[in-house]
Design a protein around this nucleic acid. Structure first.
Lengths: 220, 220
DNA sequence: AGCCGGCCTAACCTATCGGTCAAGCGTTAA
DNA sequence: TTAACGCTTGACCGATAGGTTAGGCCGGCT
């Protein structure tokens, strides 16, 4: 939620107009920044793509960096999802599997912004210092949830205990990131979360219910 | 060693001089491109860093893109290593473990280049069309070797047969890439190939000799 | 000696960059 | 009517981008 006011349409004609153009600019900038990067994208391009004058962009956003940060916030929105709320009624095993599935579905459905953030973090630190922290916070939040769930599952005797929850979570995350890389970089690779989920299920819970048994499916 | 001729010093004064300056330029450009990217690096900066005039760069390289490609080739050099030659005398198991270790050691020792290539491949292909192909060739070459070795190991009854060599190789590569991500992005993460190697050993060969048993170590 | 060609530079060129400015529009309030 | 305000624009600015030009230096060949 960047600047979402609660006022209805046409209630404030100027404000509405302003919001529209601001949105067009953000959309265009997002598209351009995403597949060209910060330095490769010029404000003139953004203006042309958004079909407004360049000066209008500078009326909405003081500098190019401010526009960039607005884009980042816009892109970060879908990342904030309250998991604990969403699946509180499931047992640990299904929460874990749900979490794993969520990671991959997210990467698949937000491939562009994931690409974007990855590229941004691989490059200039300047612009992505705060960004990196935010993402790391999300990431370790995710990891912590995983650790917590595995620990509870172990306590209840639901899964193997031959490893610490931290190590298991680290292993799972590595595997997920590996799948992510494959999906993002290999041309034509398809993300199929089910096989990954069933792998984790196998590994942690020995697939105590019916489940596919495919392991390391990597179709191409 | 880019263009290391075998001629001694001062044998060809002009050529030697030229090579020196060309090398300085390449070194500076490599450094700058690596941690700032193509568009963020200006020829003037390269000139300053290499302590030559900008015009000299354009004498050695017709355009900025040509310089960039020269840098890429320079960076790709260490990737071309003939594995089959190097470890022909080992058995499949140790060749596989060697291969795994090599992957991680390479990522660790060439982190900057790897970062650079990843970032480059995330961006639009214009500049890195040929580059992407080259890297994909290396990557699938690596994967093929892995597949081949696992297949042979299975034939000889050295390792489990509950999976196809392709799936096993895909799984291992995913795990390696996951470790790579962790190493590249987590501040202070250390790459320790031994534990990964022993994991693969455990998984494929059930660690038939003495080996550590740590799994998914993720210290931070 | 005198010229040639490889190596190198200061100065210069044009296009485009991020950013500014003053003025024009329609709406609203007085 | 008109002054004020929010939104929008074309024209413009200095800085810097990639790239060029003309020429200087230097060792080797005739």
């Amino acid at each position: 939620m960047v600047g979402s006011q609660t006022k209805g349409p046409s209630q404030e004609p100027h404000g509405q107009q302003s919001q529209d153009s601001r949105d067009e600019i953000l959309k265009a900038a997002t598209r351009l920044f995403a597949n060209r990067g910060f330095h490769e994208t010029s404000m003139s391009e953004v203006a042309r793509e958004a079909r407004v004058s360049k000066a209008l962009i500078f009326w909405h956003f003081k500098t190019k960096e401010e526009l960039f940060l607005a884009v980042l916030n816009r892109l970060l929105e879908p990342y904030f999802i309250d998991f604990a709320e969403e699946s509180r009624m499931l047992d640990e095993r299904h929460q874990i599997l749900r979490l794993v599935e969520f990671y991959l579905l997210f990467v698949r459905d937000h491939a562009n912004s994931v690409r974007f953030f990855l590229a941004q973090m691989l490059r200039e630190q300047r612009l992505s210092e705060g960004l990196g922290e935010q993402i790391m916070k999300l990431y370790s939040g995710y990891r912590d949830m995983l650790v917590e769930l595995i620990a509870r599952a172990q306590e209840r005797g639901l899964c193997a205990t031959g490893f610490t929850p931290e190590n298991a979570a680290g292993f799972i995350l590595s595997a997920l990131n590996g799948l992510m890389i494959e999906f993002l970089f290999m041309p034509g690779a398809t993300m199929n979360p089910e096989s990954a989920v069933s792998m984790v299920d196998q590994w942690l819970f020995h697939g105590r219910e019916r489940q596919e048994t495919s392991v390391g499916k990597t179709e191409h």
